[in-house]
Amino acid sequence: MSEITGLYALWLREFKVFLREKSRIVSSLVQPLLWLVIFGTGLGSSIEGISGTSYTSFIYPGILAMTVLFGSLFFGLYIIFDRRVDFLKEVLVAPLSRTTIFFGKVMGGATDGIIEIAILMVLGALFFSIHFSILSAIATVLIILLLMVSILSVGLIIGSVMTSPEGFGLISSFVIFPLFFLSGALFPVQNLPSWLYLFVVINPVTYAVDALRTVILGIGSFGLPLDFAVMIGFALAMVAIGTQAFKRMKV
């Protein structure tokens, strides 16, 4: 019982902090909009469009995935600051299992992320001629949630072993950007040279982008069953490693 109220407490804390840091919501939306408006329009004006859609529409699902990548990974990394202000100690000394603490964080981060994605979906429908049906909207949220749980776990795993925020830049360069660029978010994956294709297909984020593109635009390369199989496997693996990492985490 106290694990459940504890889970609620951890979620509530994240949610309240999220609502109070309004600048965080705004800044999390600026980057994807810059990509869509400037990069999408800029590159889109010199290419004809891909698979019958405009370039901006083509990258829209990839930009959703990118928003998750940046937002969720850094959300996980932020436990370093929890540790610095020592709120983490207060949580770790509470009679809650480390698994509960881990899931509390994941739930909190997923709530924040879903709100951001929902805003981007509305903006997409209003300004970027993206058509959502009820079904495709639900499928989009589901795919985003799966990706979010995975990436939040990755962030929490890295955050649980990192002791200072000095490594943040390294994480951006060596984790987020490769996962983003190698996911096919910005280009179709069919015609790539084989060395690049290899990197793309071993990147689990690729399958999230592919699934999103399939449900939003009807364009896909791997088929939804494979996409979901990879995403679910990735999410389960990261959650398993994450709970273990939290059990080992020192105060």
Partner: peptide, 20 residues
């Protein structure tokens, strides 16, 4: 070790939830 974005009372409330 309190959360500085939350109020004093909110910090207490979260603590009560976590300690059952």
């Amino acid at each position: 070790s309190s959360d500085d974005l939350l109020s004093g009372r909110e910090n207490l409330y979260l603590h009560a939830l976590m300690y059952g």
